[in-house]
Design a protein around this nucleic acid. Sequence first.
DNA 1: CCTGGGGGTTGACACGTTTTAACGGTCCAG
DNA 2: CTGGACCGTTAAAACGTGTCAACCCCCAGG
Lengths: 362, 362
Amino acid sequence: MSNGSRAASSAAARRPARPARGRPGTVGIKQVAQQAGVSPGTVSNVLNRPERVAATTRARVEQAIRDLGFVRNGSASTLRAGQGSTIGLMVLDLGNPFFTEVARGVEDECSERGYAVILSSSAASPEREERNMLMLAEQRVRGVLITPVDDTTARLDRLRDRGVEAVMLDHIATRPHQCAVAVDDVAGGDMAVTHLLDRGARSIAYVTGPLSIRQCADRRTGARRALRAPRAAAKDLDEAAFRDVIMPTMTPRDGQRAAERLIADGPLPDAIFCANDLLAMGVLRALLQGGVNVPGDVALIGYDDIEFVSAAAVPLTSIRQPMYQLGRIATEMLLDECDNPAEHTHQQVMFQPELVVRDSTR
Amino acid sequence: MSNGSRAASSAAARRPARPARGRPGTVGIKQVAQQAGVSPGTVSNVLNRPERVAATTRARVEQAIRDLGFVRNGSASTLRAGQGSTIGLMVLDLGNPFFTEVARGVEDECSERGYAVILSSSAASPEREERNMLMLAEQRVRGVLITPVDDTTARLDRLRDRGVEAVMLDHIATRPHQCAVAVDDVAGGDMAVTHLLDRGARSIAYVTGPLSIRQCADRRTGARRALRAPRAAAKDLDEAAFRDVIMPTMTPRDGQRAAERLIADGPLPDAIFCANDLLAMGVLRALLQGGVNVPGDVALIGYDDIEFVSAAAVPLTSIRQPMYQLGRIATEMLLDECDNPAEHTHQQVMFQPELVVRDSTR
DNA sequence: CCTGGGGGTTGACACGTTTTAACGGTCCAG
DNA sequence: CTGGACCGTTAAAACGTGTCAACCCCCAGG
């Protein structure tokens, strides 16, 4: 479908015979030892506990390492040590900017601490999640950061019995002996609707994806909570002022259709709250095309605060989630758990979202 | 900065003592063999060449594997075999939707073929690239997909000498004995400007990032080529109709500033070509705010065709790059090179971009 | 001069798997 | 009845590193 036509300018050169210097990777700890005139054990010490070896010897070994271009064999280390220095990251959907930002945080933290990240996407399929989890287990990852596709608790417990720690991402832990990092979606929904009420809205539509998605449901719960709060009661408002528009998916196109439906169905609400910035951008477009003034006639607020909403025709107010931080903190917790499991206490960190006000509600 | 306040609801449960079933991961091929009443070698055969072992024996072994929850130790396999089944993916910037899409393609292809992906970001820093490359080498990856931060050819050659194959992503190979996959940016620039000319534009501004970025420079080259083409000459146009607006970075904010400058500087061009959709969205916003009609007064075209441009106030025409395909094909080429290096021919595949016309040039 | 001690280094073994040559058993053909 | 071929299985030797007990040497103290 979207594949550009491929023009192979493949003049293509036959691979030249491998350089004569022998099979690659043959430079091991032994060769280094020989070159430096020490025993293999000493080389290993230089690599892992440099303080135990005399400065002059160390220098000699390090020189030999450089001369020979030695690179430590991670498999052998891992095999011998019983544990490696890689972690697994299993996300729901690589196409979603949310997970991309999380991944960025994870990668940065790992890179700084000398860990490697094995990336894996379940693409929301339990089978694929299962398959990739097995692969991670085979790789003997130190731990796993996972956004579970459904209730994966049983699988995670099995993993942990095998020594693979896990931290759940953007998901509440169902068991106490489990780390989890999430953002408070109920608070986010509350925050959004409270803001709309403060701006004078007296009727609100909630444009969302399926309520079977936890995030959509939680944000809705928060929204309705805001309508029961004293602040709303003082204005003589209640949940009757609230209306759902449920779409099957959460793309801009869905948002557009939702707004068209709202326009067709009769009197517009004062404000629209979208479960997602992509939906919000679609809604915005339909409203503008329909001659509706934003925020004059209808105020609009999205969720996630992805980069692009500030560049929309009317910059969108949104609820910001600390996505990058989410990744970093989760990684920190996981590595802490790995490094000293003895005194590690399982935590369930809940981040608070943040309201970012822009023109669409001003 | 952007970290939501963290509210640790860390009632936190002390980790329960490890289940008594002994150290985890202790289930090896030996235990399976004992349980099934065969020798370790047979278990290995069941795992790797099932056809060589009698059906009944195989069933017995498989049952034992299930009963014990055995998971093959990848490190040991890799150590013994001398090569594993992971590849490295080194991108320039995980925040860029372009690389995200590429990564999605890579991950899908690998997942299907049973490979694991180690994700790594150089964040445009040569030091970090070097550091992470070392890590990949230690992991004994089968090969590397890399978007080089600068001229990394020397490093890549060293890698290849150690048996790590490499395919360059979105970059032209400088040596023939090297695989590379890229998109033809010159053609893309040509395509964009040709389209603008066809629509009747007689003066064009090119809003771009630094021309030291290859992509920006190539697209510009293509744009100017279009102005020298017969089609342009027939309309009595030449390169004088072309103007650069160079910004330090390529965010929506930069685009906005660029457009403001164009408005301030005097007569607007008939059309604006942006090196990037993010820039284009900023330009669009500034134009609309300034009361400029798009496409009536000024036509606008972006580059990349990221998902959001179709949801902009005026849906943007853009040049689509087959990002997902780029990742898949590159992975295919790399794995092919790994699987039979003997008869592998190095290819340099150049994808052709595609024009996607929307309202902003209609 | 002898002894004790300690820092520095050594060498052998273990990690879990794959591989290969050798082995025993079975069946068929001579 | 016997020799050989074939099939399935086995035992043992690697892969490259980390660990640890033992060892060597040199020096300080007796």
